[in-house]
Nucleic acid binder design. Sequence first.
DNA 1: TAGATTGTTAATCGATTAACAATC
DNA 2: TAGATTGTTAATCGATTAACAATC
Lengths: 202, 202
Amino acid sequence: MPRYYRYLGELMDEGVERISSNELSVRMKVTASQIRQDLNNFGGFGQQGYGYNVQYLYEEIGSILGLDCQHNVIVVGAGNMGQALANYVKFEKRGFVITGLFDINPALIGTMIRGIKIYSMDQLPEFVRNNRVDIAVLTLPKERAEQAAETLVRLGIHAIWNFAHLDLDLPEDVVVENVHLSDSLMQLSYNIVKNRREQQNK
Amino acid sequence: MPRYYRYLGELMDEGVERISSNELSVRMKVTASQIRQDLNNFGGFGQQGYGYNVQYLYEEIGSILGLDCQHNVIVVGAGNMGQALANYVKFEKRGFVITGLFDINPALIGTMIRGIKIYSMDQLPEFVRNNRVDIAVLTLPKERAEQAAETLVRLGIHAIWNFAHLDLDLPEDVVVENVHLSDSLMQLSYNIVKNRREQQNK
DNA sequence: TAGATTGTTAATCGATTAACAATC
DNA sequence: TAGATTGTTAATCGATTAACAATC
């Protein structure tokens, strides 16, 4: 669904008002059948003989994705990745507001990033008690990530965006989305090898 | 495959010598059948009655993933994300060596990150001519990403790790691996909404 | 030889695609 | 009404799982 949302956003920017599953399928390089199937799973957003209204569909998908309300986000681990994410302004536009960073590095604690304060890890429980936190971003080395994740869950956080290089083993009512950059890079490397082989066989 | 590699690495660290598809399936939370099927696609790495030798399998998968040789990497876009990636030392251990960063920001050009120089975008063609480049990391805002990708391909680069928030439209002999962070965050948000619904229905 | 566990085939399942009737 | 295009069902395909014979 995020991918549909992205393409519909682009269409809006281009001022396109309506689009058929067929036109969209060309753009997105999926079948029209696929699109109609997917969109229909979430409700009848189209109209026979007309297609889909871009803005309406964009907003509907946005609300399905939960983008119609604000999410308060904390970043646990203010290293390079944590800082990079904190500096990334675009998330804010989609309603993901970073309210605090946390680290154990004394050199970082107390400093600010884009107006967001870096707290000590010790301050985490208190912070979570006093502020609503919807999502925790986990940008720690894997050695400390497992334990931090458990702490977060104990504090009542139910959603983790995990950048640590391990699979978290958490209760099923906790939602985890993994970004395994190393895996992604290896996948690229694998595809390079495969591609090389295929090109040779031509 | 990267996930297998990761788990086998962990097993090695724990000093485990051999493992059966069954034991591994418990750890990785996939079926034993799946594991045997997957591994067998790439060759008979196991032995009936014994299981799989962890180190042997680790190395075999490593070579399938192309981790047995060095990859020279450039980072195009030395913003927060580009810098974060350049600072990430672990990639180097897997043979991915960053040899240069590129940006248009005059304030960055000429400075160093972890001993790696930031060049002007203008210097890109010359750099690629004089140095082998296996992978280009694209960490630019989407407005400039498309054009940069085309430049990279024109210069003969065949693999792009794309962090820009768009799908690149490139010749099929160019391998692209996407890391769409916004999509990932929206996916998380979607799963939060879904999870909330499911918990309520209990 | 007996036990364990793979490699591999067959069965199941889910997801994708095709087709077309419903309807704007 | 005719044309367009969805919603939805049926057919196809691929991936996952189960089963078991091969073999260490």
